[in-house]
């Protein structure tokens, strides 16, 4: 069903535009040009975020945190890593999902748990850097704090819900 939503959305917008006699092509080109400007404005933010996130991952700091949590939570190291990386890096979580799916099985408990964690929240750091960076905001006040707390609730809830539903 979700395969049809995208084309239907585009079709609906275009049909409504025809109905309202919008100068479709010119309007489209003008809007699209804005994407060009936007891409140039967001690139430095993207660059800064990705370089610092990757340094954080490869410096071994996250490994240190994960090893601290390992004895407390009784789930495999890959799942803990996924939970910690989820708000930080989209690429890293996809790599971890790949490991979990192949090592434990996509329909195993850990496979189901990881799928839920992956789906329940977004890459918070990426969204914050991109969205605020695109309009030149330097002071994001409490934006990161609220989002990370919500991520924490979502991931903890995923754990509990999966234990309740799947084990």
């Amino acid at each position: 069903m979700s395969n049809y939503i995208l084309p239907l959305m585009v079709l609906g917008i275009v049909l409504y535009g025809i109905f309202k006699k919008v100068d479709m092509y010119d309007v489209f080109i003008d809007g699209s040009k804005e994407g060009f400007k936007m891409a140039f404005t967001i690139f430095p933010n993207l660059l800064a975020m990705i370089v610092s996130v990757n340094i954080l991952i490869d410096s071994g700091f996250l490994e240190f945190v994960i090893n601290l949590l390992l004895p407390v939570l009784k789930v495999p190291i890959e799942v803990i890593s996924l939970a910690i990386m989820r708000p930080i890096s989209g690429n890293a979580t996809l790599a971890l999902l790949n490991t979990i799916y192949t090592k434990y099985g996509v329909d195993s408990f850990y496979g189901l748990l990881s799928s839920t964690i992956q789906g329940c929240t977004d890459t918070t750091f990426y969204v914050i850097a991109l969205y605020y960076g695109s309009i030149g905001i330097k002071n994001t006040r409490y934006a990161l704090k609220t989002s990370l707390l919500a991520d924490f609730v979502g991931i903890t809830a995923s754990l509990m819900i999966c234990y309740f539903l799947f084990s």
Binding site: V14, G17, K20, V27, S32, K33, A39
Partner: peptide, 24 residues
């Protein structure tokens, strides 16, 4: 990553401006 998202952003901003111009 920029090359991945940029064309999609340009496409959708074009479509979004149709939706905006038509009052949708």
């Amino acid at each position: 990553l920029l090359l991945q998202i940029f064309p999609v952003v340009a496409l959708w901003l074009g479509i979004a401006s149709i939706a905006s111009a038509s009052g949708l």
